[in-house]
């Protein structure tokens, strides 16, 4: 909530005082996107939702195959489907696809860091590595 409403913005790029010219974007700034116009239309959102629903159904169905197929294969399949759902929500509903690359980089940094660190962590406890 705090983040959502604390809309204080100090325009660092404000050059009006002294320069007397219109504000110019700060050096290194990416071209500004008029977000409202590039967000997809509701129809697309619904389409994504349909895909998500189908994927969920397939996921649940897949989980019932337990015992009939190789469980590693099952885990990989479920993991891939979860990742696809994750990607769809992040890319479309959270607008990462259209929004500035800054968000993508930051979020991916956290995500990759989490996966790598916790991946190594779990690897620790696998019987081959943890052997005193």
């Amino acid at each position: 909530m705090t983040e959502g409403t604390d809309l204080v913005t100090v325009p660092a790029g404000e050059t009006s005082v002294g320069a007397g010219t219109a504000p110019e974007p700060a050096a290194g700034a990416t071209p500004v996107l008029a977000e409202a116009h590039t967000h997809p239309a509701p129809r697309q959102y619904v389409l994504i939702a349909v895909v998500l629903v189908i994927l969920t159904a397939v996921e649940v169905a897949t989980s019932y195959l337990e015992g009939n197929v190789n469980s590693n294969l099952l885990i990989v399949a479920l993991g891939v489907m979860a990742a696809v759902k994750f990607f769809l929500v992040v890319a479309w509903y959270m607008h990462m696809k259209q929004d500035s690359h800054v968000f993508r980089r930051l979020f991916l940094t956290g995500l990759i860091l989490a996966s790598v660190v916790y991946g190594i962590l779990l690897l620790f406890f696998s019987s081959t590595v943890l052997k005193s």
Binding site: L7, A26, A36, S100, F103, F107
Partner: peptide
């Protein structure tokens, strides 16, 4: 409503903040 003209990265402060917070939540 779009503050993006004002910042160095071209994105608004609150949005940048929430994304940072979310990446922290990932951990």
């Amino acid at each position: 409503a779009d503050h993006s003209h004002d910042t160095n990265t071209g994105v608004s402060n609150p949005k940048l903040a929430i994304w940072l917070f979310l990446s922290s939540e990932a951990l």
